[in-house]
Amino acid sequence: MSKSILITRPNYDVTTNYLFYWTQPVISFSEKRNILAYDLYGPKTTRANLESYTAKRNPKIIFLNGHGSSNAITGQDDEEIIACSDKNISKYKNCIFYARSCQSANKLGVSLVNNGATAFIGYRADFIFFRNSDYATKPRMDPIAKYFLEPSNLVMTVLLKGNTTKVADKRSKQSMKKNFLKLLTSNSSMDGREMAPYLWSNIKAQVVLGNKSAQL
């Protein structure tokens, strides 16, 4: 059976709209490497679809985008699509997760790993990004959001290359750190320097739970 990944990317407010468009390069990268990407986008981002695709398609990696909390991650229109309280959370056994959402490493990630998921990469605090409001209709072109979202995509692309969860986390953090230092340099604009604390927060919040040697 060929390797596959499953992606959720709701699109119903400005934050999810940005995550939606910034996930596209990961899908393209996956296709280039002949790794099947099941794409649950927009209204398709439902609990029913996530559970059904996981059960039937057996994806090795699940990449979740959307709003989150310590206990859950949501899909389209704030529907809770995966939560600590799920009775059947062990259905995600052997999956590697990357959750680009707020706080979900605190409890949801722990619960998934304790119930058989191989690993969970996520954030213990809010995942934060700045954006330039002039780019609201073309998020992928936003040079401000790029500082925050491009390094987070690296978690996935490094995993798709067959590297371990530990390496994916490290490379992503190295990229964030590089951007962070760029923002801090004297050549950087004033607005750049003032965004640096928030990128620093993302660096400190990103963690790997479970098997750090896990790979696709």
Partner: peptide, 10 residues
Amino acid sequence: HLQISIGNSS
């Protein structure tokens, strides 16, 4: 012109 996405809002 900068906005921040943090938590569930912008």
